[in-house]
Simulated scan of single mutants.
Amino acid sequence: MEILQYTPEHHAFREQFRAYLAENVIPHIPQWEADHIVPPEVWRDLGRNGYLCTATPKEYGGHGMDFLYSVIITEEIGKTGFCGLTLGLHSDIVVPYIETFGTEEQKKKFLPGCVTGDTITSVAMTEPGTGSDLSSMSTTAVEDGDDIIIDGTKTFISNGINTNLCVVAARDPEVSNPYEAISLYLVEGDRPGFERGRHLDKMGFNSQDTSELFFSKCRIPKENLLGQKGGGFIILMQKLQQERLICAIGAVVAAEMMTERMIQYCKETTRNGKPLSKFQAIQFELVEMATEAKLGRAFLDKLIAEHVAGEQVVVEVSMAKYWTTDLAKRTIDRAISIVGEPAMAESLGLAQAMRDIRILPIFAGTNEVMKIVAARFMGL
Rank of each mutant, 00 (worst) to 15 (best):
Y6V: 08
L225Y: 02
I246L: 13
V25D: 01
G379I: 04
V317I: 15
S216K: 15
G349W: 02
A251D: 06
Q283S: 06
I234F: 03
H28W: 07
V314I: 15
S337F: 11
A328W: 04
I235E: 02
E292H: 13
P178N: 09
D146H: 07
N159G: 09
D172W: 11
A335C: 11
T331D: 01
V308H: 03
V71W: 08
E143K: 14
Q283F: 06
I338A: 01
D151I: 13
L226S: 06
E15S: 13
T116S: 14
P30E: 03
K302M: 01
A375K: 13
D356T: 12
R358N: 09
I149R: 04
G227R: 03
R48Y: 00
G231T: 01
I72R: 01
A353D: 03
R334V: 08
L380F: 08
F101H: 11
L300H: 09
M262I: 05
Q264D: 11
T140G: 05
R219I: 10
A141L: 04
I72N: 01
G340T: 06
L276S: 04
T324Y: 10
D92E: 15
M125R: 10
D201Q: 13
I338M: 03
C83V: 08
G84E: 02
F214D: 00
Q31K: 13
T7H: 07
S122N: 07
D133L: 12
A328K: 06
T163W: 01
F156S: 12
Y265P: 06
E41A: 02
A124H: 05
A22H: 09
E341Y: 12
F156M: 11
P128G: 08
R271L: 14
G61L: 08
P342N: 03
A320C: 14
T56A: 15
D333S: 15
I157Q: 08
M378F: 09
L276F: 09
V317S: 01
R171S: 10
R330P: 04
G231V: 02
M344A: 05
W32L: 02
T269D: 03
I338P: 02
E316K: 15
D146F: 00
